[in-house]
Design a protein around this nucleic acid. Structure first.
Lengths: 131, 131
DNA sequence: CTAACACTTAGAGTTAACTCCAAGTCAATA
DNA sequence: TATTGACTTGGAGTTAACTCTAAGTGTTAG
């Protein structure tokens, strides 16, 4: 796959993909004779994983660390697991915070709704009394 | 309340509070005769609201817009409501994405656990067969 | 009264994560 | 074969949201 095809498939820009590769997030992308990137399905798997993690707010730095350990082989498995646990816990915490905020916003929106309804009613009763 | 007291109370730095005020997120903070900020409970309410929204990833730009409308009075109520709805929907969407990622991470972590257990078992059986 | 310390301002600096640019190369088509 | 358009690289620029600095003022403990 070319970079354009991968971009269409996963929804990232070529610049972002090249950036991710440059900083070590997508290991071993091979090239054609002319030096053009040629992505395998395996590469796409990585990209998709990275995209998913980034979408949940996992920092690039943590992902670089993970990929680096991955490339060092099986002996780093438990260290990698620790990274995943750490990031999982972060996401879980952030999730709670967002759930609270969501609830708070829902209350506030509801309050706006009743207030706006009441204001309209009042307006109408004034209009009516004038007739 | 002084800026230091508010900071301790809500968990923000003085720099951040001054920054928020400067860009219009905390309206009408009054000063002492000497020009030092003196926060009311009402101010703290705003700050706490802003902190909550920021904690859930609501952009400063959206909050500035909201505060500006708020200061313009009742006539902006429905416009303000629209902002809250928009941000609520964003948070809800982000929440879903994070829940998916959380699940994915949990699977991955579990896989690491079984793999590591198996590796250890294998190691042990080799050790045993040598004895 | 003075030393020490918190506060003030305007504005510069930092950080993360892209995003864009210039100059050049490669592939396909008229 | 020439041109068009996607690709390459290294490096500069951008954006959001702080965070820090410098130079000065106010407040309080000894």
């Amino acid at each position: 796959m070319t970079i354009a095809e991968v971009c269409k498939k996963v929804g990232l820009t070529p610049d972002t993909l090249r950036y991710y590769e440059r900083i070590g997030l997508i290991p071993n992308v091979s090239r054609t004779a002319g030096g053009i990137r040629s992505y395998t399905e395996y590469d796409c798997g990585w990209i998709e994983f990275i995209k998913c993690m980034r979408g949940a707010g996992v920092q690039v730095e943590a992902l670089i660390e993970y990929v680096k350990l991955f490339q060092q082989g099986d002996s780093t498995a438990s260290e990698r697991k620790q990274i995943l646990i750490r990031e999982r816990d972060r996401i879980a915490e952030q999730l709670l915070e967002m759930q609270n905020t969501l609830e708070r916003l829902n209350f506030k929106i509801e309050k706006y709704e009743t207030d706006l309804r009441n204001a309209e009613k009042e307006l109408q009763s004034i209009t009516n009394s004038k007739e």
